[in-house]
Amino acid sequence: KRPMNAFMVWSRGQRRKMALENPKMHNSEISKRLGADWKLLTDAEKRPFIDEAKRLRAVHMKEYPDYK
């Protein structure tokens, strides 16, 4: 299984929150909104998620060195 990218790290928490706030919203609509919201974030706002994704990638490479 591939490590999560920055968007996936960020959206994991946001998806739960949005689903709780909008229980009747379909998952596909939540995904569209999350994508739009992510694009509106500044680089500074994205930085912690980018850093976490880099950390996850490094751990994955160490655990699965032959993964392609």
Rank of each mutant, 00 (worst) to 15 (best):
residue 1 K to L: 10
residue 1 K to E: 14
residue 1 K to V: 11
residue 1 K to A: 09
residue 1 K to Q: 03
residue 2 R to V: 13
residue 2 R to Q: 12
residue 2 R to G: 10
residue 2 R to P: 09
residue 2 R to C: 12
residue 2 R to S: 14
residue 3 P to N: 11
residue 3 P to G: 10
residue 3 P to W: 01
residue 3 P to I: 07
residue 3 P to V: 08
residue 3 P to T: 10
residue 4 M to I: 15
residue 4 M to L: 14
residue 4 M to R: 01
residue 5 N to Q: 04
residue 5 N to A: 03
residue 5 N to E: 11
residue 5 N to T: 15
residue 5 N to G: 07
residue 5 N to R: 02
residue 5 N to I: 00
residue 5 N to M: 02
residue 5 N to W: 03
residue 6 A to F: 01
residue 6 A to G: 14
residue 6 A to D: 03
residue 6 A to T: 02
residue 6 A to K: 01
residue 7 F to T: 01
residue 7 F to N: 05
residue 7 F to K: 01
residue 7 F to Q: 04
residue 7 F to G: 00
residue 8 M to D: 15
residue 8 M to A: 12
residue 8 M to L: 08
residue 8 M to G: 09
residue 8 M to H: 08
residue 8 M to S: 08
residue 8 M to W: 07
residue 9 V to T: 02
residue 9 V to I: 13
residue 9 V to R: 00
residue 9 V to Q: 02
residue 9 V to F: 02
residue 9 V to G: 02
residue 10 W to R: 00
residue 10 W to Y: 01
residue 10 W to D: 05
residue 10 W to N: 02
residue 10 W to T: 04
residue 10 W to M: 03
residue 11 S to N: 02
residue 11 S to C: 12
residue 11 S to T: 04
residue 11 S to P: 01
residue 11 S to Y: 03
residue 11 S to E: 12
residue 11 S to M: 06
residue 11 S to L: 04
residue 11 S to V: 04
residue 12 R to G: 12
residue 12 R to E: 15
residue 12 R to W: 11
residue 12 R to L: 14
residue 12 R to T: 15
residue 12 R to F: 08
residue 13 G to Q: 13
residue 13 G to W: 06
residue 13 G to A: 13
residue 13 G to K: 09
residue 14 Q to R: 06
residue 14 Q to S: 06
residue 14 Q to I: 09
residue 14 Q to N: 08
residue 16 R to W: 06
residue 16 R to M: 10
residue 16 R to L: 08
residue 16 R to E: 15
residue 16 R to V: 11
residue 16 R to N: 14
residue 17 K to Q: 08
residue 17 K to P: 02
residue 17 K to H: 05
residue 17 K to N: 08
residue 18 M to K: 01
residue 18 M to A: 03
residue 18 M to E: 10
residue 18 M to C: 04
residue 18 M to Q: 00
residue 18 M to V: 07
residue 18 M to H: 07
residue 18 M to L: 12
residue 19 A to E: 15
residue 19 A to G: 06
residue 19 A to V: 13
residue 19 A to R: 07
residue 20 L to E: 15
residue 20 L to Q: 15
residue 20 L to D: 13
residue 20 L to V: 10
residue 20 L to Y: 10
residue 20 L to H: 07
residue 21 E to W: 07
residue 21 E to K: 00
residue 21 E to N: 12
residue 22 N to I: 00
residue 22 N to F: 08
residue 22 N to W: 04
residue 22 N to D: 12
residue 24 K to H: 11
residue 24 K to I: 12
residue 24 K to Q: 09
residue 24 K to W: 06
residue 24 K to R: 08
residue 24 K to P: 02
residue 24 K to C: 06
residue 24 K to N: 09
residue 25 M to W: 07
residue 25 M to L: 10
residue 25 M to F: 04
residue 25 M to G: 03
residue 25 M to C: 02
residue 25 M to K: 01
residue 25 M to Q: 05
residue 26 H to V: 10
residue 26 H to W: 05
residue 26 H to Q: 14
residue 26 H to C: 13
residue 26 H to M: 11
residue 27 N to D: 13
residue 27 N to W: 07
residue 27 N to Y: 12
residue 27 N to E: 15
residue 27 N to P: 15
residue 27 N to V: 07
residue 27 N to I: 04
residue 28 S to K: 07
residue 28 S to L: 05
residue 28 S to T: 12
residue 28 S to G: 10
residue 28 S to P: 02
residue 29 E to K: 00
residue 29 E to W: 00
residue 29 E to C: 00
residue 29 E to P: 00
residue 29 E to A: 07
residue 30 I to C: 02
residue 30 I to L: 08
residue 30 I to G: 01
residue 30 I to E: 09
residue 30 I to M: 10
residue 30 I to R: 02
residue 32 K to S: 11
residue 33 R to D: 01
residue 33 R to A: 10
residue 33 R to P: 04
residue 33 R to C: 06
residue 33 R to W: 03
residue 34 L to S: 02
residue 34 L to K: 04
residue 34 L to W: 00
residue 34 L to D: 04
residue 34 L to A: 03
residue 37 D to M: 13
residue 37 D to S: 11
residue 37 D to V: 10
residue 37 D to Q: 14
residue 37 D to W: 03
residue 37 D to T: 12
residue 38 W to I: 05
residue 38 W to Q: 04
residue 38 W to R: 02
residue 38 W to L: 03
residue 39 K to S: 08
residue 39 K to E: 10
residue 39 K to A: 11
residue 39 K to V: 06
residue 39 K to M: 07
residue 40 L to F: 04
residue 40 L to Q: 13
residue 40 L to V: 08
residue 40 L to P: 00
residue 40 L to T: 12
residue 40 L to A: 13
residue 40 L to H: 05
residue 40 L to M: 12
residue 40 L to G: 08
residue 41 L to P: 01
residue 41 L to A: 02
residue 41 L to H: 01
residue 41 L to K: 04
residue 41 L to Q: 02
residue 41 L to F: 07
residue 41 L to M: 10
residue 41 L to D: 04
residue 41 L to V: 03
residue 42 T to A: 04
residue 42 T to K: 04
residue 42 T to D: 08
residue 42 T to S: 13
residue 42 T to V: 02
residue 42 T to I: 03
residue 42 T to R: 05
residue 43 D to E: 11
residue 43 D to A: 08
residue 43 D to M: 11
residue 43 D to Y: 10
residue 43 D to K: 04
residue 43 D to V: 06
residue 43 D to P: 10
residue 43 D to R: 03
residue 44 A to M: 09
residue 44 A to S: 13
residue 44 A to W: 06
residue 44 A to Q: 10
residue 45 E to D: 07
residue 45 E to Y: 03
residue 45 E to A: 07
residue 45 E to Q: 10
residue 45 E to C: 03
residue 46 K to M: 04
residue 46 K to P: 01
residue 46 K to S: 02
residue 46 K to H: 04
residue 46 K to Y: 00
residue 46 K to D: 06
residue 47 R to C: 06
residue 47 R to I: 05
residue 47 R to Y: 01
residue 47 R to Q: 15
residue 47 R to N: 03
residue 48 P to K: 04
residue 48 P to E: 01
residue 48 P to C: 00
residue 48 P to I: 02
residue 48 P to L: 03
residue 48 P to R: 05
residue 48 P to V: 01
residue 49 F to R: 01
residue 49 F to P: 01
residue 49 F to N: 03
residue 49 F to D: 01
residue 50 I to S: 06
residue 50 I to K: 10
residue 50 I to Q: 12
residue 50 I to N: 05
residue 50 I to F: 13
residue 50 I to E: 15
residue 50 I to M: 08
residue 50 I to D: 03
residue 50 I to H: 06
residue 50 I to A: 09
residue 50 I to G: 03
residue 51 D to R: 04
residue 51 D to T: 07
residue 51 D to S: 05
residue 51 D to P: 00
residue 51 D to Q: 08
residue 51 D to G: 02
residue 51 D to H: 03
residue 51 D to C: 04
residue 51 D to W: 01
residue 51 D to M: 09
residue 52 E to D: 09
residue 52 E to Y: 01
residue 53 A to G: 02
residue 53 A to N: 01
residue 53 A to W: 00
residue 53 A to V: 00
residue 53 A to M: 00
residue 53 A to L: 00
residue 53 A to P: 00
residue 53 A to E: 08
residue 54 K to H: 11
residue 54 K to A: 12
residue 54 K to P: 04
residue 54 K to D: 11
residue 54 K to F: 12
residue 54 K to C: 06
residue 54 K to Q: 13
residue 54 K to G: 05
residue 55 R to V: 04
residue 55 R to E: 08
residue 55 R to W: 07
residue 55 R to N: 10
residue 55 R to P: 08
residue 55 R to Y: 04
residue 56 L to Q: 08
residue 56 L to C: 11
residue 56 L to E: 12
residue 56 L to S: 07
residue 56 L to F: 06
residue 56 L to V: 07
residue 56 L to K: 05
residue 57 R to I: 09
residue 57 R to A: 14
residue 57 R to D: 14
residue 57 R to P: 12
residue 57 R to M: 11
residue 57 R to N: 15
residue 57 R to V: 08
residue 57 R to H: 08
residue 58 A to G: 14
residue 58 A to E: 14
residue 58 A to P: 03
residue 58 A to R: 09
residue 58 A to Y: 06
residue 58 A to M: 11
residue 58 A to N: 04
residue 59 V to P: 11
residue 59 V to H: 10
residue 59 V to L: 13
residue 59 V to R: 08
residue 59 V to N: 15
residue 59 V to Y: 12
residue 59 V to A: 11
residue 59 V to D: 05
residue 59 V to T: 13
residue 59 V to S: 08
residue 60 H to G: 14
residue 60 H to K: 09
residue 60 H to I: 05
residue 60 H to V: 10
residue 60 H to T: 12
residue 60 H to D: 13
residue 60 H to Y: 12
residue 61 M to S: 14
residue 61 M to W: 06
residue 61 M to I: 08
residue 61 M to D: 15
residue 62 K to P: 12
residue 62 K to W: 05
residue 62 K to F: 06
residue 62 K to D: 13
residue 62 K to T: 12
residue 62 K to R: 11
residue 63 E to S: 07
residue 63 E to F: 04
residue 63 E to Y: 06
residue 63 E to G: 09
residue 63 E to A: 09
residue 63 E to K: 07
residue 64 Y to A: 15
residue 64 Y to S: 14
residue 64 Y to C: 15
residue 64 Y to M: 14
residue 64 Y to L: 14
residue 64 Y to Q: 15
residue 65 P to H: 11
residue 65 P to Y: 11
residue 65 P to T: 14
residue 65 P to G: 12
residue 66 D to A: 12
residue 66 D to I: 03
residue 66 D to G: 13
residue 66 D to E: 12
residue 66 D to L: 09
residue 67 Y to R: 13
residue 67 Y to F: 11
residue 67 Y to W: 10
residue 67 Y to P: 15
residue 67 Y to K: 15
residue 67 Y to D: 06
residue 68 K to D: 13
residue 68 K to T: 10
residue 68 K to Y: 02
residue 68 K to Q: 13
